[in-house]
Amino acid sequence: MLHNLRQLFRHRALIQSLVTRELKARYRGSVLGFFWSFINPLLLLAVYSFVFTVVLPGTHPREIEPYALFLFCGILPWTWFSSSLTEAANSLMAGGNLIKKVLFPAEILPIVAVLANMMHFFFGLPILVLFLLYFRPTITFVEMLWFPVVVAVQLLLTMGLALILAALTVHFRDIKDLLSNLLTLWFFATPIIYPMHIALPGISKSVLNANPFTHLAVSYQEILFYDGPLGHWRWLLALAGASALLFLFGYFLFDRLRDSFAEEV
């Protein structure tokens, strides 16, 4: 397994070119092309803002202003997370040709899915920066130092889950359909459209705390939306440790099932 992990590092050129290919191929043929990377998060934001300020006004607490910025802090990383998992779960089937016909390290496929979506996340960041410059010119540099840490933790968590999902979906195609619904539920069970500290009648704090994405979302919000230092760092570091374990477990599982892919895909 360690040997394979080292191999993975050796394949970085391949990973890099596959990620580039993913990005290039995605918007090939569309009029706006690469701009969709910026427009997509904006449109998503517009939809949620419309829902929560026009259709269902007053569902979020008064002090969460500007609400659009608050939403953006959570939705942007969530989009990365959920589309990574959806694509990763399908990645081995979609790349079946590679696994069956070419000597190809299969784990690259889910990893590329996660990294390509991370790039889309990065492309959405300039929009976020514009928002910040407009709404929160007071943001401090020290706070921003935490940002890459949160991104790294999210990357680790997403990769771990992506490996597990990719390997299991080969054996159980049902996961693909289950996953999209599960992700919708997960989205609403995470403090993204509502803040962590409001009392929810139906869902207890401990449930929210058990949800790993809660700590990522709250960290993003504390860094980007709220004033003051990051109060959530203990949770964040604990999540980092758990994510590292999850990644190792995911890689182990993937490695174990590796030989079955060429046959089951």
């Binding site: 070119s17 596959l18 069956k100 016909k101 070419v102 190809f104």
Partner: peptide, 25 residues
């Protein structure tokens, strides 16, 4: 291995880019 030719090609991108990616693979 010439088992299936062009197995790794991506239809949307150019032949040039595919040559590079296929070569790296």
């Amino acid at each position: 291995a010439l088992i299936e030719l062009g197995a790794g090609f991506h239809p949307e991108i150019s032949g040039r880019e595919n040559v590079f990616i296929n070569g790296i693979m």
